[in-house]
């Protein structure tokens, strides 16, 4: 049967992949994808652990909440990226180093 451990392994794997993408990719959208992956890993964990809270289904609730939030932040982030691209003609986070006040 599928135990909690399996969920956690999958979640850890997702997390690691996300983390790797964030650290290594030079593309802001990819980084955003990585963040989504990590977020999903956390959501997966929440869902998995919700088995121990069958009364309130707190885990499920938080998961939904987080998904909504994630969707919102992603939208905002994509908008920023779009603006950044417009301004700098690049979305490589390393090259965007002009955020400080001129």
């Amino acid at each position: 049967m599928i135990t909690l451990t399996h969920f956690m392994v999958v979640s850890a794997g997702l997390f690691c992949i996300g983390l790797f993408i964030i650290v290594s990719k030079k593309n802001a959208i990819q980084v955003l994808l990585g963040i989504e992956l990590m977020l999903n890993a956390a959501i997966l964990n929440m869902v998995a652990f919700s088995r121990y809270d069958r009364v309130n289904n707190g885990g499920q609730m938080f998961a939904l909440f987080a998904i909504v939030l994630a969707a919102a932040t992603t939208a905002v982030a994509l908008a920023i990226i779009l603006n950044v691209y417009r301004r700098y003609k690049t979305i490589n986070p390393d090259e965007i180093n002009q955020l400080k006040d001129q």
Partner: peptide, 12 residues
Amino acid sequence: RGKVQYYLYSML
């Protein structure tokens, strides 16, 4: 260097 990825990397 002011690069998030590096900060993250080093935290990791």
